[in-house]
């Protein structure tokens, strides 16, 4: 699915990622953990194609193609989805209009027929119900005035509608209480499939109790300093990042 080799990236000339290599197979869920400032969000933004980030070295191969050559929207249509840590508020664009525009934009690029209003509404209602997103929320401007939980549920709803091949969940647990976390995690778990891989980025182990990863990587100072199975998350929970980052240094 995804192969990252010796990836170096910088923001405004400051190097943030300093040689990341990571291979993610079909259907695998990889957790990337690390302290603040370790480069977790930079990695997710680089994968999504944000223009403020410059790749200075290394490669990203997605489904056998050079991902870095694709524009932001081309990556999305190719199946990459970034669930934002802080979803952007967009006044004046209703959530429903946005969802329909996004779904049909991707269908069009893939040569599929665009969904008509009725079919789309049916689909959204069904998915929204599963995520406890009420109709009122869909009529409101995108993410405007949404609570933390509502924003993350809206992100998960987008993911379930767009059906990506590779989902990158950037600190999906931030700002969520335990009930909201369960709803979002259930939504994510329903989307696990043999042809869908996920990168779950988190600071805390808590999320990984609900979205159980196949592999766990620890990111510190722009490098992966340790990789292991799901038990590595537990170990981190007990020992904290300090031990690890110091022993690696």
């Amino acid at each position: 699915m995804l192969e990252i080799k010796d990836l170096h990236a910088s923001v405004d000339g400051t190097p943030i990622l300093k040689g990341i290599s990571l291979t993610i197979g079909d259907g695998e869920v990889h957790a990337i953990m690390g302290p603040n400032g370790s480069g977790k969000s930079t990695l997710s933004n680089v994968l999504a194609g944000r223009e403020d980030y410059t790749i200075t070295k290394g490669s990203i191969t997605y489904k056998g193609k050079d991902l870095t050559e694709l524009a932001i929207e081309e990556r999305a249509s190719a199946g990459i989805f970034l669930a934002f840590q802080y979803p952007t508020e967009i006044p004046g664009v209703t959530t429903m209009t946005f969802l329909k525009t996004a779904v049909n934009a991707q269908r069009k690029v893939r040569g599929e027929e665009e969904l008509n209003a009725v079919t789309f509404l049916k689909l959204v209602r069904q998915k929204a119900k599963e995520l406890k997103v009420d109709e009122d929320m869909l009529k409101r401007p995108l993410n405007v005035g949404f609570s933390g939980g509502e924003k993350k549920r809206a992100e998960t709803l987008q993911m379930s509608l767009l059906e990506p091949s590779l989902a990158v969940l950037d600190e999906t647990d931030s700002g969520l209480d335990i009930d909201a976390l369960k709803i979002v995690a259930d939504g994510v778990n329903r989307l696990r499939a043999p042809d869908r891989s996920m990168i779950v980025i988190t600071h805390y182990q808590r999320l990984l109790d609900y979205i159980v990863p196949d592999h766990v990587h620890v990111l510190a100072k722009g490098r992966i300093i340790r990789s292991g199975g799901k038990e590595l998350a537990k170990e981190l929970e007990a020992s904290g990042y300090t031990d690890l980052t110091e022993s690696a240094a």
Binding site: E51, A76, P87, T88, I90, T101, A102, Q106, V109
Partner: peptide
């Protein structure tokens, strides 16, 4: 940020 958000969902830049 809003442009990036819309584009990251597959909406082309001009439409966004």
């Amino acid at each position: 940020d809003a442009l990036f958000y819309l584009r990251s969902r597959g909406i082309d830049e001009q439409t966004a």
